[in-house]
Structure formats: C-alpha cells, structure tokens
Amino acid sequence: MGKYILKRMGAALLTIFLVVTITFFLMNLVPGGPFVAEKSISEQAQNALKEKFGLDKPLIVQYKNYMLNAFHGDFGLSLKQRGRNVTDIISSKFPVSARLGGIAVLVALLLGIPLGSVAAVNRGKWVDNLIIVIATGGIAVPSFVLCTVGMYVFGVHLGLLPTFGLTSPLHYVLPVFALSFYPTAYITRLMRSSMLDVIGQDYIRTARAKGVSQFFSLFKHALRNAILPVVTYVGPLLAYTLTGSFIVERIFVIPGLGGQFVSSIMNRDYTVIMGTTIFLATLVIVMNTVVDIVYKLIDPRIQLN
C-alpha cells in the first residue's frame, strides 16, 4: 500500500510539473502581453514595467526564475492588480468559491444518493419513472440556462430571492441550485444503476432470506457497495466545483476563483494565470489520487496497481 501511494504521488508531481511547463510556454508563445492593451502607457514605461517583472529576459531564464521561486512557494506579484500577491489573490478568492461549491456538492450527494436508491428499489413503478425523467432532463439543461431562468422566475418575477452577491444565506439558494443541479441528476442516475446491480446480487437475497428487514438489508448491505461508483465521481466533481464555475460566478456576481481565472486569462496576467493553473491542476490531481486510494481501501476486490 505504501509503495503504491508513493508511486502515485511521484506520478502526480511529474504531471503537475509538466502541466506547469506546458502552460508557461504556451502562454508566452501567444502574441501580445500584459501591458500591450494599456495604450496610455508610453513605450518607456512599458519597458520599465517589463524590466520590473523580469519579462525582458529570455524566455528560458524567465522559466528558470519562475520555477525556482514557485518551488519556494513564491508565485510572484500580479501584473495587473498592482501590489497584490498571487498567493493573496488565490487565498482571498478560493474560500468564496469553495464554500459555495462545497454546499453544492453536499446538496447533490444528499439528494442524489437517496433519489437513486429509491428509484432502484421501486424499479419500473411510477416513482422510478418520475425520478428517471427528472434526472435525464437535469443532465440536458446547461447551467447558464438554469441560472438565468431561476433568476428570472424567483428573483425578478416572484421577488423571493436575491439575484446577486453572497451576503446572506438566502443569497446562496440560487447559485447552489444552479451548481448542484447537474451533479444531482448525474449521481441519481449513477446510484440507480449501481443499486440495481447490487440488489440483484446473491448476498442481498441471502440477507433477505435470513430475515433481515428490507430497510436494513438496503442500508447495511446494498448501499455500501452501491456507493462505490459515486465515490469515483465525487473526487473530480469536488475539484471542479470547489474552484468555482465561471458561468455561475459571472451571472450572480460572485467574487470567486472561477471568475478571477477567466479575467486573468483575458488580461494576460501571467503570474495569476500560472498560480491559478498550478492550484487547479494540483487540486484535480490530488483529488483523483485520493479517490483512487480511497477506492482501493473501501473495495477489497480491486487489486493494487
């Protein structure tokens, strides 16, 4: 087990390193730069700025400097938001997105797992059909549609919910709804099919034959095994949801990491792009690795390697 974890961590570090390298060179190969758009700045001032941030040096030297600094935990200053540290920006924006995303994932799990199980147990009955129709529909609706329609119906038309910002618990309702809709539908479908698989297994029949009640046989025996595919899905889901959805953050005017990332790309804020990419990539890879390890811990049928 220890050897396996070490191997996975080595591979993860290598992947992060390569992603960072590719992003760095790709970003710099693209014509234009962070100070080109600012027409008010004279050429002299532009050169001074470039010198200040070390952008006048050859690319390979910039790369070496950046990697050395990043290795020491210094991700540099933002090129656009004067005087702000990249680490500062990420650590101020990430909690906003993470809280929203965390609630959304929690909602998706709390709704999706029971709904999927109920559908599987009542296979072919109207409850099952209803849940399946809703879940299939849920997968087909893009999040921006949900956001805007939800905003129109509840925010503007009925005037029940606030439509922008994140200042009170009520503010969370619409964004969480929009963020958790797709994962809920997906988890419901996943849970239903794996629950159907498990219910048909011999050990469930044995448990029922021994006189275990239906409720108990479902919760004690079936749920534990049926939940495995959901675990694999939740890892990447967490990584992507915690870092914030750009669409949801833009529509509801939420100052999160997702919106920050896209605006930094548009502005060519090199250091912020790099910092955020490293952060996102690390989160995705760590989550995937954790899921793989957890998966092997909870499912003894799976062999290591």
Binding site: A11, V19, F261, I265, T277
Partner: peptide, 19 residues
C-alpha cells in the same frame, strides 16, 4: 493523456484563439 486532461480548457481555448 493525464496531462492533457488536467490543463484547464478555458485557458487553452483563449490562448489558442489569441494565437
């Protein structure tokens, strides 16, 4: 394939369309 999967897609789309 893992690396390609990890690079944020929005970043690539914007960069490629600029490039």
């Amino acid at each position: 394939a893992d690396i390609v999967y990890t690079v944020p897609d929005i970043l690539l789309i914007v960069l490629i369309s600029f490039a």
